[in-house]
Amino acid sequence: MKTLLLTGATGFLGGAVLEKLLNENQEANYLFLVRAENAQQGLDRIRMNMEKFNVDAGLFSKITIENILLGDLSEPEDFLSDIRINKVTHVINCAAVASFGNNPLIWKVNVEGTLAFAERMAQVEGLKRFLHVGTAMSCAPEPGSLVAESAEFEDTAEHLVEYTRSKSTIEQLMRQRCPQLPLVIARPSIVVGHTRLGCQPSSSIFWVFSMALMLRQFMCSLQDNIDVIPVDYCADAMVMLLNRETLDNDVYHISAGEECSVSFADIDRAMAVALEKAPVGDAYAQVNYDVLVKMRRQLKDIFGPCNERLMLKAMRLYGSFAMLNVRFSNDKILKLGMPKPPRFTDYIGNCVQSTRGLSIQQQMVVDFK
């Protein structure tokens, strides 16, 4: 039986992975890296996250304080000496500071702490797979492109945010410093919502689409495409990559690809159906960021109480990503037998329903922690 060390189980993607493992009763000895004062608090944090995913309490009851590994990737030396690590056969590393803000822990956790963790796991004799969650955006893609699944990065690539730069850097460092690590990189594209639960587990990024359509103007065109997948599809692919005895590649995009990506016009129409109102359509205007800055005093009238500075920062960052108009090739994961992903527009109604009554300011907190 495998012994699985899962990091990030209190988060969005890590929670979705654990949801799948529990619902499918997959046989494994579990170890969960959790930030907490004690094991009981760590267990409670995971339980509260599983409640967001509607996991049956009976299924969760098999998880006890014995499964908790107390620790924090910002201070890895505090947990890397735990002898239970020596029995680990598989790792899914979902933990990261996934913030588009200027969180000072981004580099400390995503690069320094993750590298120390990888170096420790490379010393475990029975380790068969170290599945690390990167991001498809770590390659700093060219606008308008279909991005290939490659382990190569350009050293001069310019990143829009520190988060994607950190993800690019740690991939390269793990390959250089841990050549014996059985490393597989999963690079999700833009993860938004859950096919059944909408934004109940997390409102991450969904608010960007609502914000742009409420403004009736943004930095991208309605004809631009965006590569979005639901978190449960991403978790399904992660577990597939975990369980395969052999893999032909060490880098996999988990993405909508060229076929299942959607345009912003598609999103506009789907959200209009969910909200039972007319789409923005021809009333939408593509504008540059300076136009949005001039609207600063109108933001509270449009969105309600909000931090104007943070809203403008969000518009600049996410607008820059939206303008890329990129898709990420998903050929490798499909060849493994993974079904095509649902389109964002297939489940966007659940995202709308689960965010009713929440302001844009409330929804965006998760992305600027």
Rank of each mutant, 00 (worst) to 15 (best):
K20G: 04
T7M: 05
Q362Y: 05
T169G: 06
N225W: 10
I92F: 06
V147K: 10
P179Y: 10
F328I: 12
M338S: 10
L275V: 00
N102T: 13
C351K: 07
F209L: 05
L334Y: 07
C220F: 15
F206H: 05
E142N: 11
T3Q: 11
V111A: 01
F79Q: 09
V239H: 03
R129E: 00
A322M: 15
G337R: 02
L4R: 01
E162M: 07
I254D: 02
Q40F: 06
V231C: 00
S255Y: 06
G101A: 14
K313T: 11
P201H: 07
M311V: 14
I85N: 00
T114C: 02
S166P: 11
G15C: 03
R343M: 15
A322I: 03
Q172K: 15
Y163T: 09
V231Q: 00
M238S: 02
D78Q: 15
S166N: 08
N102L: 10
A16T: 10
F368C: 05
K277Y: 01
D248S: 14
D224L: 05
L334T: 13
S354G: 08
Q176K: 15
P104Q: 04
G126W: 01
I190S: 12
Y252E: 10
L183Y: 08
S261G: 10
N54C: 09
G281L: 02
R165V: 06
R196E: 15
N330G: 07
L181N: 02
R297S: 15
M240G: 00
L73N: 10
M48Q: 15
V124E: 00
P341R: 01
N249E: 14
C260L: 08
G281W: 00
R356V: 12
L31K: 05
D367W: 03
A39D: 13
P188L: 13
N49W: 01
V34F: 02
A270V: 03
L292F: 05
I205S: 08
E19N: 12
Y318E: 09
R47I: 05
G198I: 09
H159V: 01
P141E: 04
T164P: 01
P230V: 09
L115Y: 02
D56E: 10
R129A: 00
V91E: 00
R296A: 14
S150T: 15
V34N: 11
A274N: 08
Q172G: 10
M323V: 12
L213V: 11
G126Q: 03
S263N: 06
Q176S: 13
S210N: 11
M174C: 13
E259H: 13
R120A: 07
L242C: 03
N102M: 06
V109M: 04
L173Q: 13
Q26P: 00
L70K: 06
I348Y: 02
D232L: 03
I190R: 03
R35V: 05
A272H: 02
T169L: 09
A16D: 02
E51N: 08
R327E: 06
A122T: 12
I68D: 04
E75K: 15
A136M: 09
A98K: 00
L80P: 01
K294V: 05
M311W: 11
E24R: 11
N86F: 01
D367L: 08
H132V: 00
F303D: 07
A95I: 14
L31G: 07
Q298C: 12
G337L: 03
R47S: 12
A314T: 09
D346N: 12
P341K: 03
L299M: 11
D72E: 14
Q363E: 12
